[in-house]
């Protein structure tokens, strides 16, 4: 790694006339330039992290996905693309794929549609504003796994289930929030939105506060009403914030694991099962490293594609607006 071309543009070399008088000959200096070696040593730790914790694991995932490796026995066979072919006939994996996508799309849409208006309101002056800001932001602070467990109690059909207790006192029937597939999916998404909407609203708020006031003032003088100002000034100015927020929501959604595991455990059946859970279950619990690696590789490619597509679309939109 250290055998590289000399550093023509390096900061350390641009020190001016004073330095060039000592060990000038460059050919020899290259070998003896201890400073250059020392400078490059700073890249070593992060390079080790890259190689050991990213590069090698990704290559091994790719290789295992083509084999029937079980995680223990050293001799295993090359099976070609068989693991990939089986991905789509495996109920757990297909369900994991479906719910992960549903969760990602739903949370991204709902959080964006709620966070932007919320940010606009939080930007106004009103009594109790600090309380409202804190209350919405607060769910972002604790571990989402712990919050998932707490919501498990809140949504429970048993005595601890506050929501059902409230419904019952008003004469309604207890709702099986976590034990029917449709409602369980809804509940996971609901808690996901609840825990993120305030955080994203604060992100938008930070960008809103950067909008120059003159812009709004001029618009008011020109006779623009509230809705026109929102769609023609606020929303375009929020475009960069939307890129960041949606990127976080999309990648966070695709990687979701903590919330479904703690709230529903992936059930009932496989209705709230996620891709990450599928990788862990197949790989570590059931020792099907080959099969699980194939899923991991597909997962990585899907994330890469979605991130690239989102960035491309966002960039085009931002350009059109400006």
């Amino acid at each position: 790694m250290s055998q590289q071309a000399p550093a023509p543009l390096a900061v350390g070399d641009r020190v001016g006339p004073g330095e060039g008088t000592g060990t000038e000959p460059r050919a020899r200096g290259r070998r003896w330039d201890r400073a250059a070696v020392a400078d490059r040593l700073f890249l070593l730790p992060v390079g080790v992290v890259f190689v050991v914790l990213f590069l090698i694991p990704v290559i091994r995932s790719g290789w295992w996905s083509l084999t029937n490796y079980n995680g223990y026995t050293p001799d295993y066979d090359f099976v070609g693309l068989a693991n990939y072919g089986r991905l789509f006939s495996d109920t757990a994996m297909v369900s994991g794929f479906v719910f992960t996508l549903l969760y990602t799309v739903a949370t991204t849409l709902v959080v964006t549609c709620l966070a932007i208006p919320l940010a606009v309101v939080l930007n106004r002056k009103f009594i109790g504003r600090n309380f409202v800001r804190s209350a919405f932001f607060f769910p972002a602070i604790p571990s989402i796994a712990v919050l998932g467990l707490v919501w498990g109690f809140i949504l429970s059909p048993l005595g601890s289930g506050v929501i059902n207790r409230v419904i019952e006192t008003f004469g309604g029937a207890s709702v099986p929030w976590l034990s029917t597939p449709g409602l369980a999916r809804f509940s996971v998404i609901l808690v996901g939105v609840w825990s993120q909407v305030g955080w994203h609203a604060i992100l938008y708020l930070a960008y809103l506060q950067a909008i120059p006031e003159e812009l709004t003032e001029v618009a008011i003088i020109d006779g623009a009403n509230g809705r026109q100002r929102f769609f023609h000034i606020t929303l375009p100015m929020l475009a960069p914030a939307m890129t960041v927020s949606q990127l976080l929501l999309l990648t966070g959604g695709l990687k979701v694991y903590d919330l479904p595991v703690t709230l529903t455990g992936g059930g009932p059946g496989y209705s709230t099962f996620t891709l990450t859970q599928a990788i862990i279950q197949r790989g570590i619990a059931q020792s099907e490293f080959g099969q699980a690696s194939a899923l991991a590789v597909v997962f990585m490619l899907v994330i890469g594609l979605i991130v690239a597509a989102q960035l491309a679309v966002a960039r085009r939109l931002e350009r059109r607006i400006q």
Partner: peptide
Amino acid sequence: AFLVPFQATLLPLYR
């Protein structure tokens, strides 16, 4: 490395 999700490296890291 920034683009690689943890899930894709999880099993090799476990080994």
